[in-house]
Design a protein around this nucleic acid. Structure first.
Lengths: 340, 340
DNA sequence: CTGTTAGCGCGTTCAT
DNA sequence: ATGAACGCGCTAACAG
């Protein structure tokens, strides 16, 4: 309510002195500074956001675009939005949520009106329309996720390729030789959400490289049981599973396997990889290569703020190295009797 | 990028003419208006948000506070945040997300700096600290949820009391005489999140009124099975269940009942009431009295915008009448053989 | 009734 | 440490 002018009067100094005293952008004698600060305190002075924005050319607002599809995991979405917001606050930014069906409109508008100083793009598809847009607007943008053409973009994400390798390595180390990937549903794949694609692509390549038998399925929550049954018919000697799918699917895996007379982790060892939810409280907790929303978002916000504040952002794509958390769903198997 | 001045020059008129032509707040001859509009279009003119805010004293921004606890249902949270955002856009407002641990700070700051024109409060506890704060700030506020003392507040929510009655009535109509409520976890209750309290309170009152046997349990996801077993020992003739709990609990109910040799809906009929998630794809879809995020949020935003734009908001508390959706989880039971 | 001039809102920052 | 210009759009008051 109180304006800078009233504070100035109260403290018996000029307006600019108040501004400098409070912002610290110029040296002010200790006595005046404290008088000013007390006056500001007393009157509950808060600079009007609009005036500050107009004068400083910074809104201290970051727009977050998170389009919602029917198949999006809202829980994961919320976690990322939450973490972006948290991280932004540590840099003194607020976040504007753009979840409208027309993401393009929101981005264009917030950028064109200088409502937002920068943009965080969540849930990136391989050929995301927001990619093209990001190149045309003059507003710092960071993608949490990696589209297929990253030219001129700044992207942050878990290193899904290495995660896939790591998961396979672990299973092979445990003596597993027939490994399947339970990937995301067909809808997600068709929409070309990119991290499931990247993960499954590298899974296939690397499994072939390492010379193990492998397969990929794309169940939805409803079809989990049927798809796993079919999988076991195709790969009767299946002894390793990597789960890179939504929680609804993931948490049905063990019950389904048990109904098919397979024990976990003895008959079949399981790793959840690149999943943003916690698998602690599953019937059998899975070894996990977590998709850490906090880490991705903090890094993304950091890079965005660097861009906004003109610190040069060095590289286009930053991949976060995966980590491995053991919880007992992978067990060493005695070497199979060779050749039957 | 282009300013109003450049548009004025391009169109060969004064700045104010441009403003009036674009805002429509005064009549402008058709010829000039179209010239102005074309010029604005051509130059991609968008008024700078900060300047507009400063001049108009409106930010066109609504702050949304949604504190996250360990036990909050992030999916539901996201749905509400999403719906508020959608609704806000239809009134030409954007939404600022306040999920910081310190909700108070966020509210105070956005209100004091006039960053936000109004505030939507989600996930309201019975004695929510944000209630006191809302009374002290001069910023329009609407609560989605009803705290215990609503003096001077504007609140919108599902009518949980009537929902409880409706669920009981339905079960009694179906010949059920021993009804339990599966309520939210103990953590939620201890935090005094208010709608579970309101629902279970009315459930007990009304069940007693109607003269049926009743009980309430508060399982967490992990303890669902154990708590339901115990419930059946306490109420061996249990034949009706009302579920007002999170999805993790809800979706375990049927498997647990089946493991205890109870069939649904024959032995035990079930209604999900006041839940914000879809129960369509449960093993057995439940009859539902939905907690409709869209309806609540649209109404809340409408009332907030009315307040902001000084249309008088008449009442303190607006309760949305519940609706009943049949999906086949309630079945009429032949009248029990009286007295054994 | 249409168009213009002028002043405002409120911090920030340069030049003195 | 201060006065004054500035950022940019809105709108009341005035003129044609």
């Amino acid at each position: 309510m109180a304006s800078i002018e009233e504070v100035a009067r109260e403290a018996g100094v000029s307006i600019s002195t108040v501004s400098y005293a409070l912002s610290g952008k110029r040296a002010i004698s200790e006595s005046t500074r404290s008088r000013v600060q007390e006056a500001a305190q007393r009157m509950g002075y808060q600079p009007k956001a609009s005036a500050r924005m107009l004068a400083s050319k910074h809104s201290q607002i970051i727009a977050v675009t998170a389009p919602i599809h029917d198949d999006t995991d809202r829980e994961a979405h919320m976690s990322f939005a939450l973490e972006v917001t948290r991280a932004a606050r540590t840099h003194d930014y607020d976040t504007l949520l753009l979840v409208h069906d027309d993401a393009i409109e929101g981005i264009r508008r917030t950028a064109a009106t200088s409502l937002a100083d920068g943009i965080i793009v969540l849930d990136v598809d391989a050929n995301d329309e927001r990619v093209t847009l990001a190149r045309t607007i003059a507003c710092p943008t960071v993608f949490v996720g990696v589209p297929s053409d990253t030219t001129g973009l700044i992207c942050v994400d878990l290193d899904f390729e290495t995660a896939a390798e790591m998961a396979i390595d672990r299973l092979i180390e445990a003596g597993r030789r027939s490994i399947a990937l339970i990937s995301h549903s067909r809808e997600v794949i068709e929409r070309q959400q990119n991290f499931p694609l990247r993960f499954s692509k590298r899974f296939c390549e690397y499994a072939a490289e390492r010379g193990v038998e492998f397969a990929v399925i794309h169940p939805s929550a409803d079809s989990t049981s049927a798809e796993i049954s079919a999988l076991l018919e195709r790969l009767p000697s299946l002894d390793g599973l990597i789960v890179n799918a939504g929680p609804e699917v993931a948490w049905r895996v063990v019950p389904v396997l048990e109904s098919l007379d397979r024990t976990v982790p003895e008959d079949i060892s399981i790793i959840a990889a690149g999943v943003p939810y916690s698998v602690d409280r599953f019937p059998i907790p899975f070894d996990t290569i977590p998709l850490d929303a906090t880490a991705s978002c903090e890094l993304a916000v950091q890079m965005l703020v660097d861009q906004i504040e003109k610190r040069p952002a060095p590289q286009e794509v930053t991949l976060i190295p995966p980590s491995y958390v053991e919880r007992g769903s992978v067990r060493r198997r005695p070497p199979a009797q060779e050749g039957g």
